[in-house]
Design a protein around this nucleic acid. Structure first.
Length: 114
DNA sequence: ATCTTGACCTAAT
DNA sequence: CATTAGGCCAAGA
């Protein structure tokens, strides 16, 4: 029973996934917002790292997560060339020059976990 | 066990 | 206004 530890809710990654899964369809958020909502406003870097591991989880839309500038910094980590942009376009999110158009309006801020 | 890297952010110069 | 530096957490070598 003590062999499984990665499924613990106390894990940083699991917390990130939980928030990312809450991102509405056709909406985007930032790493900093996620980090802030989980109680680690300065651990935005780790959030991105968690996303990298979230590739195995189809429930975690990593393509909806961009940096605070609305830039698709992680698009290079997706399979193919513009998979991230394509996924966003499918949801109605237009991307120009690796930047989300109307990013400010499409930005969705998660509620802080109290 | 230590060092380096990484899909970042904020503050200071 | 643009650039630089520091900090944070986690995983790999």
């Amino acid at each position: 029973m003590a062999t499984n530890v990665t499924l613990d809710n106390s894990d940083f990654f699991e917390r990130v996934y939980k928030v990312v899964r809450k991102i509405p369809h056709g909406r985007v958020t930032t790493y900093g917002a996620i980090a802030k909502s989980i109680g680690a406003p300065q651990a935005a870097r780790t959030v991105g790292y968690a996303m990298n591991a979230s590739h195995n989880l189809p429930d975690v839309p990593a393509h909806r997560v961009v940096n605070r500038n609305g830039m698709l910094t992680g698009k290079h980590h997706f399979p193919g060339r513009d998979t991230m942009q394509r996924l966003l376009a499918q949801e109605g999110v237009m991307v120009e020059q690796d930047c989300v158009v109307n990013f400010k309006e499409l930005l969705w801020l998660p509620e802080p976990l109290i």
